[in-house]
């Protein structure tokens, strides 16, 4: 199916010739749809229904504690959220965390991908070691970081990194740095894996040829590796940005949203789970969903990301 998606200009693959659709091809396509149907229906049930229900709830005044006051209120929940300074403050915080963590992850992930790609001996162990943080449950990782920076129990205090009485998790900048570090530590391996897949798409012959022409290592990296990897990089960035924007666990464990480190997801949690205000909380969730769609649309339409290319199917 991916073969029929639009071809971004990044790759110079020849466009497939339009073949006449034969009777057999048509039958096969029909079979394909039939085979896909169960998965599609399952997706509709487990994702389509909840999303639709959330949208429905977001148009109601509906607090679980006051079930009698339930009524249809149209878009007023959305205007409440969008006119409150808390929401925009949280959007800013989330954007800071997203941009900083994804940028650091890209650089680190690229370095690690190059190491994994070039590793001559011990490939297996190297890859396994790098993947360990990604295999650890985020909540557990966040607790590890919290205890590390705890003023009474942590080991970071008193090292060359921090003074004896510094407590980064008690003020905004420090908390943001620790949250970003936790995110980076946890998800760089994922970035590295995606980039490694992209690296393996770069043919060695091009490097050989460039070497013969006298290109330096740096030149070859920026002129050959990066352009050829662009689709893979964009996909990796897309996935990570979407993930990072929804950051919840690490921020929740590290600060619980204190010191103005509340992310949009924590806001949604507070309204939905703590205040059990289903209407307002669903509006927050739907807005997060829309933000995520906008990010994805930006990557796909403006930057021309295509998941098909990344998998080498073009």
């Amino acid at each position: 199916m991916e073969a029929t998606t639009a071809q971004p200009a990044a790759t110079k693959a020849p466009a497939p010739k339009k073949a006449k659709i034969t009777e057999r091809a048509r039958a096969e396509r029909k079979l394909a749809y039939l085979l896909c149907a169960p998965a599609l229906i399952a997706m509709l049930i487990v994702t389509g229904y909840p999303i639709g229900y959330a949208v429905y709830l977001s148009l109601q005044k509906y607090d679980l504690r006051f079930p009698d006051e339930k009524e249809f209120v149209g878009l007023s929940n959305y205007s409440d959220v969008l006119t409150s300074s808390i929401w925009w403050d949280d959007v800013l915080t989330t954007t800071i965390i997203t941009l900083a963590s994804v940028a650091i992850e890209l650089v680190l992930g690229m370095a690690i991908a190059l190491i994994m790609h070039r590793a001559i001996f011990g490939r297996g162990p190297v890859r396994a070691a790098i993947l360990i943080p990604y295999g650890i449950v985020t909540v557990v990782a966040a607790f590890a970081w919290r205890y590390a920076f705890d003023p009474s129990a942590g080991f970071v205090q008193g090292t060359f990194l921090l003074g004896d009485d510094a407590a980064p998790l008690t003020e905004r900048a420090g908390s943001l740095v620790v949250i970003i570090l936790t995110e980076v530590w946890k998800t760089t391996p994922f970035m590295a894996l995606l980039l490694l897949a992209g690296l393996s798409l770069v043919p060695d012959e091009l490097h050989e040829a460039a070497k013969v022409d006298g290109a330096s290592t740096v030149q070859r990296f920026f002129r050959i590796t990066i352009p050829l990897m662009k689709p893979a990089i964009l996909v990796a960035l897309l996935f990570r940005t979407l993930d990072a924007f929804r950051v919840f666990d690490s921020a929740f464990i590290l600060t619980g949203g204190a010191n103005r480190t509340e992310t949009v997801s924590i806001l949604g949690y507070n309204v939905l789970i703590n205040r059990v205000n289903l209407g307002l909380g669903s509006a927050v969730s739907v807005l997060i969903f829309i933000a995520v769609i906008l990010i994805a649309a930006f990557f796909v339409k403006v930057l021309g990301t295509s998941t098909a290319q990344q998998r080498g199917e073009v």
């Binding site: 705890d150 003023p151 009474s152 009485d165 407590a167 008690t170 003020e171 204190a258 010191n259």
Partner: peptide
């Protein structure tokens, strides 16, 4: 106390036990 803005019951207990 150090880390005051992050202290719950247990951090308070540990802090007191650490003689600070």
């Amino acid at each position: 106390p150090p880390g005051m803005a992050n202290n719950k019951e247990d951090q308070a207990r540990i802090g007191f036990e650490s003689e600070r």
